[in-house]
């Protein structure tokens, strides 16, 4: 309890600081109704690769149990921002991070926060399907095993594959290599693998960019299904995809010095039809990017 109120206090303080500094505060979480507490509260987040600043002063709320899309041209830092949400960036040497990311009120970058625990609760799916060169079964069981599940995993593996809408296609191929599946199946295998460890969030980094339209459709259908239980953040190049699947959209753009910054965000319905910022309008109408 003491911890909770302390982190709530820091959260409030940083929220107030953000407001008073007159930054772009994306209060998309407030519009989300019942789940009004945001899953992520990003406050003044900046990131440097060595001397190069890749993100500048990003402040954004990510709604719980909704799909939030990050869009923007290449090099605007949307993948980098996504990777800040489960501390994947620190696997790259010489990364420095400023500002705060609160996950359910807890500071992800606090010294006592364990990145391994963070990544277990915040799952990730990558641009290119990356199953390990093992069987379909072992791919799904991998996360369970490293998280210390003992005994029979069969039921858990089956459940994860069903959730990822892959079970019917692979039930007879569980012992085959995961790499023998098609690209779309591999990507759903990676989703199943992520779901198996029961995360609370699914981060998806352009999950359909290597897939054909039918496989893309299946993944999008799956995302809509999954958002009842999971908070989903998706980075996408494809504005149609963002408008099809997401509830909220955030638009990023790199500045003069190539540091990515948030331009605008809001409910997807109004975002594409009624952008507030001229740059957003230019981008979503295809005038650049």
């Amino acid at each position: 309890m003491v911890n909770d109120s302390a982190s709530l206090a820091t959260g409030l303080r940083s929220a107030l600081a953000a407001l008073s500094a007159d930054r772009v505060v994306a209060r998309v979480g407030a519009a989300a109704g019942a789940d009004s507490a945001p899953a992520f509260a990003i406050r003044g987040l900046s990131l440097w690769y060595g001397h190069f600043q890749a993100l500048r002063d990003i402040t954004l709320d990510v709604a719980s149990r909704r799909i939030t899309a990050l869009i923007g041209p290449s090099g605007c830092g949307k993948s980098t921002l996504l990777r800040c949400l489960n501390r994947m960036n620190e696997l790259i040497p010489q990364v420095r991070i400023g500002g705060q990311v609160l996950f359910q009120g807890e500071d992800l970058y606090a010294p006592q926060t364990d990145p391994v625990e963070v990544r277990r609760r915040i799952g990730m799916v990558f641009q290119k399907p990356n199953p390990v060169p093992k069987s379909v079964y072992d791919n799904v069981a991998f996360g369970l095993r490293i998280n210390g599940y003992q005994g029979k995993l069969d039921d858990l593996v089956e459940r994860a594959l069903r959730r990822a809408a892959l079970w019917d296609e692979v039930r007879d191929k569980l012992r085959q290599s995961g790499l023998a599946l098609s690209g779309g199946q591999q990507q759903r295998l990676c989703i199943a693998r992520a779901l198996a460890v029961e995360p609370e969030v699914l981060l998806m980094d352009e999950p359909c960019s290597a897939l054909d339209p039918i496989a893309t459709y299946k993944i999008e259908e799956l995302m809509t299904e999954l958002k009842r239980d999971y908070t989903i953040v998706i980075v996408t190049h494809n504005m149609q995809q963002a408008s099809r699947v997401s509830d909220y959209t955030a638009f990023m753009l790199a500045g003069e010095d190539r540091a990515g910054a948030l331009v605008e965000c809001g409910e997807t319905r109004s975002f594409f039809t009624n952008p507030r910022d001229k740059r957003t309008e230019d981008y979503v109408t295809g005038r650049f990017g």
Binding site: N86, M88, V116, R119, N130, P131, C190, A194
Partner: peptide, 20 residues
């Protein structure tokens, strides 16, 4: 990408090294 996939599942450095 293989390493990142394992890290994203909550694998420690040692688990990534030994199992992937």
């Amino acid at each position: 990408a293989l390493r990142e996939g394992a890290y994203a599942l909550g694998a420690t450095r040692f688990e990534v090294a030994a199992r992937v």
